[in-house]
Simulated assay, not measured.
Amino acid sequence: MESKRLVRTATFALLAVAAAAALGGLLVRDQISRSRRDLFSPHPLRRLAALEYLGGVPASVDTVLLLRDFLAWEQRPLLRKRAQGVLLRLEAGLDSRHPTEVA
Rank of each mutant, 00 (worst) to 15 (best):
L71S: 05
A18Q: 12
F70A: 07
A49W: 07
S41Q: 06
P44I: 09
L78A: 12
E74S: 01
V102G: 10
G93A: 08
L14A: 15
V61T: 06
R82C: 03
L27D: 12
Q84N: 09
D95T: 09
F40G: 04
A20G: 11
L90S: 00
A83D: 05
R8V: 04
V57S: 03
Q31S: 13
T63V: 12
L67M: 01
Y53K: 06
H98N: 07
W73G: 00
S60E: 05
V86I: 13
G24Y: 15
G25V: 05
V64Y: 01
L90Q: 15
R46V: 05
R37M: 11
T100H: 09
H98S: 11
S41A: 11
K81A: 15
A92C: 00
A49H: 10
Q31T: 14
G56I: 03
A103T: 03
D38H: 06
D69Q: 09
V7D: 11
M1D: 14
T100Y: 05
L79R: 05
A50G: 03
E52Y: 07
R89N: 13
S35L: 03
E91V: 05
L54H: 00
V7H: 02
A16I: 12
A13N: 12
E74W: 05
L6F: 06
A18L: 14
V61M: 00
T100N: 01
D30T: 10
V61F: 01
G93E: 09
P99I: 06
L48T: 04
A10C: 08
E52K: 04
R34C: 07
Q31G: 10
V7C: 01
P44K: 05
Q84W: 08
L87N: 02
L15D: 14
T11W: 07
L51Q: 02
Q84I: 02
R5C: 03
L45V: 08
R82V: 12
D30P: 04
A83I: 08
M1I: 10
L51R: 00
R29T: 12
A10I: 02
R76G: 14
S3P: 07
Y53T: 07
R97G: 07
V102D: 10
V86Q: 01
T100S: 05
H98F: 15
S3M: 12
Q75D: 15
A10M: 11
A13V: 13
R97N: 04
A18C: 13
G55D: 04
L54P: 01
G93S: 02
L78N: 10
L67Y: 04
Q31M: 10
V17N: 03
G85N: 11
G85R: 10
P58W: 03
H43F: 02
R80F: 07
R68Q: 15
G25I: 02
R36M: 11
I32E: 15
R8F: 11
R46D: 11
V86T: 11
L26T: 08
S35A: 14
V7R: 11
P44F: 09
A59V: 02
G85M: 06
L51Y: 07
L45Q: 10
K81P: 06
R46P: 04
R5V: 08
V17K: 00
M1S: 15
Q31R: 14
G56T: 04
V64H: 01
L79N: 03
E91R: 04
L39P: 06
H98M: 09
L27Y: 14
